[in-house]
Design a protein around this nucleic acid. Sequence first.
DNA 1: TCGTTTTATCGTATTTTTACGATGATTATT
DNA 2: AATAATCATCGTAAAAATACGATAAAACGA
Lengths: 111, 111
Amino acid sequence: MGVTKTDLFTKEQNELAILAKAFAHPARIAILQYLLTSNKCINGDLVNELGLAQATISQHLRELKNVGIIQGSIDGASMSYCINPEKWENVQQLFNGMFDEIQNCRPGECC
Amino acid sequence: MGVTKTDLFTKEQNELAILAKAFAHPARIAILQYLLTSNKCINGDLVNELGLAQATISQHLRELKNVGIIQGSIDGASMSYCINPEKWENVQQLFNGMFDEIQNCRPGECC
DNA sequence: TCGTTTTATCGTATTTTTACGATGATTATT
DNA sequence: AATAATCATCGTAAAAATACGATAAAACGA
C-alpha cells in the first residue's frame, strides 16, 4: 500500500503528475521565481534568500534538475543554476493542453 | 523536521504549491481529464474507469474539491462532480503568470 | 419497511516527502 | 601547502501522501 500505481495511467498522465510534483512545494516555486527574475544564473545564495538549510536547498535543486526544468553548470567552486527554456516552454504547453480542454465542456450540461 | 515551512514563503508561492499538489498524482489528472471530456458531470463510475478502490477515488475527489477545482452536487443516491470553470481559469492564469516570467530572462546571460 | 446502491469517512499499513546535521569532494585563497 | 568556501550526498527523524478494507449514512426501489 501507499504506492502510486503508475501502470494504471497513461504516459501523459504520469508525466503531468511528475511535473506538477516538481511545482508542489513552495520552496521550489520560490527557487524558480528567483531564477526567473535574477536573469543571470545563481548558486547557493538561495540558502540566504530562503531560510532553509544548505542541504535542503540542494535537495530541492536536484529534484528540479531531475525533471529537467533547471540545469546546472560548474562555476569555479560554486554552482550556477538556471531555467531550461526549452523544457520550460514544453511544460507550459503540456499544462495548457490540459487547461484548454475546458473549452469542450459545455456550461449548460455542467452542475 | 519533515514539515513544510509555510511561513517562509509568500502567499502566492504557497497557493501555487497547493494547486500543483492537486495535480501531482496521475489518478487526479485522470479524474480531471475524465471530467473534462465527459462533458456532463459524472459520479463514482470513476471506480470502474480507473482501477482503484472506491475509497481511494473518494479520497482523491475530496482533495480536488478541497482546493476548489471541482465541485459536487447530490444526484439522488449518487454524487455528481464537475470542474469549477471559474477556478479552473483562475488556476490556469496563476500558472501562466509564472510560466510567462521566462520572457524577462535574457538568453545570453543564462548558462 | 427491507434490502440495495452509492458514497463519505475511519482506521491503518506502507511509502514518499521534507528537513537538517555531518561528511567528503572540489575549487579558490592566502 | 594549508585554510576557507562551496556544494552534493549520506544518514536519519518526522510528517505527509497513498491505498484499501470496513463501516456508516443517505437515497432509491421492491
